[in-house]
Design a binder for these strands. Structure first.
Lengths: 383, 383
DNA sequence: CAATTTTCTTTACGCGCGTAAAAAATAAAT
DNA sequence: ATTTATTTTTTACGCGCGTAAAGAAAATTG
């Protein structure tokens, strides 16, 4: 057992404050004492809601009600509470609050890999939106592994979240674990779908966007080969592969799948290593490469550079390279990467909207909703 | 007030289980029922520690002790508890636990900007290390704003963390807010120092690393200009600027500071925009540019490419560009970026080690420890 | 103004667990 | 086997807050 910590104030000994009762006419005596930082300090520190109720002159149950929903109390009492709040800056103990509420204000956010700027960005957007709704976001990354994903769900379950926004790993996700979780807590999936799981899925329309970029590439030069990983974990990758094939067949062009080995989340590394191989061994039958995602494309571009192949859409080019996702860094590659964007603003917004409507309705929607957003062509220098 | 949610099991109505008492000889009756997934299920769900103590045949206080530290109970009782644990997979209610422990097992991790892969990576490392020590990491990003940083500290304070690992925004951080926080909870600063705040600072030796790369650049070509933001928020940037100046003077070379405007965290964008300007307006008196960090360098490289300036160390080069940090993406620029690494493995390790020793000792160290790790030169194609 | 509705106060209990103290049981040592 | 040291059980209370119920006070209505 650890000793109490003399140095810090958080672990200070408990005191029983139950005897404190607010009476009409009670007045805080500390109004004149001004703290070192110039903030007005109450006579003593507020330790709990009981004490805060006392100094604010309002009963504790009403104060409790206020913290749950400030608009649920009369305007005049709200003003008194908020006045006291300015003097004493008290905050309800989050553990005690959540222990007793059956519905916490926590919203879990799970992403497969936070070091990927794509997910970092979408997580950041979602976080802000969640805060805006008055909920408390808890962001967890699965670090690319199933075990961590399951661990994250377990961890979330134990904090009784009002709902969860989850971008699953994809194919490697443990379906049973996710299913069990979804049965317990309202969950909205985004980015990667797992069939029939969660209340809704919000994602990107890969069929639309891949068709878009394929048609663009075919219209402006040689039809593309499709550069991808052989066994991607992300289900979107399969959709992209399939759509690429369909579009090429429809247009009467050969389907050239360049499927490379490698797993994990080091996509740039894989794109670089395998791109180097593909280029140096002359495995392409075309001068145009569509990469399954921007991170692969970034690696591929590095490989092309190293091999001395000029990439671009000028006449002196040796290669055209395109990506998919409009990854935050794709603007700064050399040349800048032509790609097709995911509308992550909309995906983020719709995801939290959907989750919130489920939370507030308090019941499962009759049927699972799937929403896909279109991508836009982002023409830059590389293709 | 929200309705109870009929669909989900987490919000199920409470039941009073206080009457349940474990007696010697009590045996769980559910051992034969096997759940659909093949997991053995207890006869009924375990709702609290009382019930779990009952089915495990151990008293609740002892079970409580076990969960705090499994090695603190006798080997035989530990085995009995763990056997019961396999049957019933019970987990203590995290809110109830934390409410009553003066020292929670939570460790806060605050980074200034999680969408920056550098911080994402170091956060990932730290998270893993923290988990390895049996603590529970809570990762928060300040999204580049002071308000969010303060908000994060407030938020952390309310969950009574055993300690916090914090990479502050730097100059823009609110010193008072951080100071107050550090007075309440054991805090170790990393990456960016704030003078005298926190129990320790673990960071990178910018003087060493900048000297290293400056000397390398001077030895192998023209002395570098220093490309940086005029008013960086990060204190490391000032240290780098200063060291650059000192080294150049010591070596008898002109100090060429290229200080560009811009704020926020879109460093690539700033490097690109201002790099474009600097190059096209021919503002450099040398062919060698040392950027204050890799993200600026990445933008600068994009600008050089767009302007048709060949970057590298070959004879046909127009420019040499170097960065600092060994950012995860700097391997994949064109050409790959020559830079100097930060030893973030060591920084992460030492940070959590330091925090843990403070937590376990239970008292503030007599004096604040500052630890800096050396960087290594990473020679790649760009300089 | 009284009658009605809304809001607040009082009182009381519960949540799931930490933890202290004394008694009982078990293990280790003599 | 007895003494001693260690661990567990019993009992009991507290944490900070949610929340229900009944009565009191305030605001609204006519």
């Amino acid at each position: 057992m650890l000793d109490p910590r003399p140095g810090w104030t958080v672990g200070s000994p408990k005191v029983n404050a139950r005897k404190l009762v607010a009476r009409k006419g009670d007045v805080s005596r500390g109004d004149f004492r001004v703290g070192p930082q110039g903030r007005t300090m109450g006579g003593r520190k507020i330790r709990n809601m009981e004490e805060f109720a006392a100094v604010s002159g309002i009963s504790r149950p009403t104060v409790s009600k206020y913290f749950h929903d400030p608009s649920s109390v009369r305007q005049t009492t709200r003003a008194r509470i908020e006045a006291a709040l300015e003097e004493h800056d008290y905050r309800p103990n989050i553990f005690a609050v959540n222990q007793n509420r059956r519905l916490t204000k926590n919203v879990g956010i799970v992403v497969p890999y936070l070091s990927d700027p794509f997910f970092a960005e979408i997580a950041r957007n979602i976080e802000k939106l969640v805060i805006g709704t008055g909920f408390r976001p808890i962001l967890l990354s699965s670090h690319g592994t199933v075990n961590q994903e399951i661990e994250n769900l377990d961890s979330l379950r134990s904090i009784k979240p009002a709902g969860v926004l989850m971008a699953p790993l994809g194919r490697s996700s443990n379906r049973d674990a996710v299913e069990t979780f979804c049965a317990d807590v309202p969950t909205v999936l985004f980015d990667s779908n797992i069939r029939d799981l969660g209340e809704a899925f919000i994602g990107h329309d890969n069929a639309q966007s891949i068709a878009l970029i394929c048609e663009y590439l075919c219209r402006t030069g040689e039809p593309p080969a499709f550069f991808e990983m052989r066994n991607p974990t992300n289900p979107n990758a399969y959709r992209r592969r399939r759509t690429y094939g369909e579009v090429m067949e429809r247009m009467g062009h050969p389907v050239q799948l360049v499927q490379v080995d490698g797993d994990g989340w080091d996509f740039e590394e894989i794109g670089y290593r395998e791109g180097n191989r593909v280029i140096s061994e002359n495995l392409l039958q075309t001068d145009t490469v569509l990469c399954s995602n921007d991170r692969l494309a970034i690696g591929f571009l590095a490989a092309a550079y190293e091999c001395g192949r000029r990439v671009g859409h000028g006449n002196d080019r040796a290669l055209r390279v395109a990506g998919h996702d409009n990854h935050p860094f794709s603007r700064f590659t050399c040349p800048p990467l032509t790609t097709v964007s995911q509308d992550y603003t909309s995906i983020a917004e719709r995801s939290v909207e959907t989750l919130l409507s489920v939370i507030e309705s308090g019941e499962r929607p009759k049927r699972r909703i799937t929403t896909l957003f279109d991508g836009k062509l982002v023409m830059r220098g590389s293709a």
